[in-house]
Simulated scan of single mutants.
Amino acid sequence: MSEQLSTAISIAEKQISQMLTMQDAMNSRVSDTWRANGYEWYRAIWVECAEMLDHHGWKWWKHQEIDVAQVQLELVDIFHFGLSLRLMTGDDVAKITSDLAKELHQGTAESDFKIALENLASSAVTKKAFDAKALADCMSLMNMDLDELFRQYVGKNTLNFFRQDHGYKEGSYIKIWHGEEDNEVLAQLVNELDAGADNFQQQLYAALEAKYPKN
């Protein structure tokens, strides 16, 4: 392994390790017995794949524009479910981290986004598994590297925590903030803050708190 590749893998492992920790915390926030609950994470993946295809466009009989930002957001959602599936395998976090870092770096070099997406969905449907190489292909074709995945993942994870803390599960959460959906507010805040800061998640949560409509 070249020194450059080794450095890239090392950085990837650090980011993935952080995301695995955050995913475990988020799942535990929803249910402290999430590992034993039998949630169908694989089903969430293929459903998100179908939704993403609509944002990308697949209808040959009409003109469609690719909504890159929305496709990227769907990829981040899928990664949440993919991390959860890997955590359910029983492997230790170090092995999961190492495997994901290599798979996300490699991909398969698929050049057709729709085929790459179908590979991702197929693995979820037929093997009930998360195909990280297929996700890497989708990311590459949407100009999304691991740094961008990390930035958007931390953002969405923080919003998910915020939602839970403000009544999402009970149905009292307010999703429209002064005329904008919370996802839109999140995107603005993530771009304004320094994603490389050690306390990025804490800063983002505080910014969300300041923007949230008060009853």
Rank of each mutant, 00 (worst) to 15 (best):
K62I: 07
K102A: 06
M19I: 08
L100F: 05
E3D: 14
T7A: 14
A121V: 07
E192W: 04
A124M: 07
V68M: 06
K169V: 04
L159M: 14
E13Q: 14
A8C: 11
S10F: 08
M52A: 15
E110Q: 13
H63I: 07
E209L: 14
Q70S: 06
D147W: 07
E13R: 12
S10T: 12
V93S: 01
Q15Y: 04
L87C: 04
T97M: 00
D147H: 10
K175A: 13
M26N: 07
N191P: 02
K95V: 03
W58V: 07
W61Q: 11
D165F: 02
L5S: 11
A132N: 03
N215Y: 08
I11M: 07
T7Y: 09
L85D: 03
L117I: 07
V154Q: 13
L186S: 11
H178D: 15
E118I: 15
D24E: 12
Y212I: 06
K175F: 14
E65D: 13
A134I: 08
L141S: 07
K62V: 06
A210N: 11
R43S: 12
Q203L: 06
D194M: 06
S111G: 04
R163C: 03
L120F: 14
S6P: 03
L100C: 06
I45D: 11
Q202I: 12
M144F: 08
M52Q: 15
Q70T: 09
A129V: 03
H80R: 05
I11Q: 09
G82S: 04
L146S: 09
K133Y: 04
N37K: 15
N143S: 14
D165G: 01
Q202S: 15
E118V: 14
V68D: 03
I174F: 13
D145G: 10
V71G: 00
R35H: 10
I78P: 00
L193H: 08
N119E: 14
T7D: 12
L204Q: 03
Q18P: 09
I176R: 15
G107F: 07
E3Q: 15
D67W: 06
L186R: 09
A121R: 06
V93C: 01
A129F: 10
G171F: 02
L117N: 08
L141E: 06
F162W: 14
T21Q: 05
A210S: 12
T33H: 14
A132I: 02
N160D: 07
E148A: 02
G171H: 02
A25Q: 15
Q202W: 10
I11P: 01
N183L: 03
A187E: 03
D54Q: 08
E51M: 14
L83N: 00
E13G: 05
E40S: 13
N157H: 04
Y205H: 11
A101P: 02
L135Y: 02
L146P: 09
A50Q: 13
I16V: 11
V76T: 04
D91G: 00
K133Q: 12
D112K: 10
N27D: 13
L186W: 10
L75C: 06
A132S: 11
G155D: 11
T97D: 00
M142Y: 02
A8D: 15
A101Q: 03
H178N: 15
A36S: 07
M19C: 11
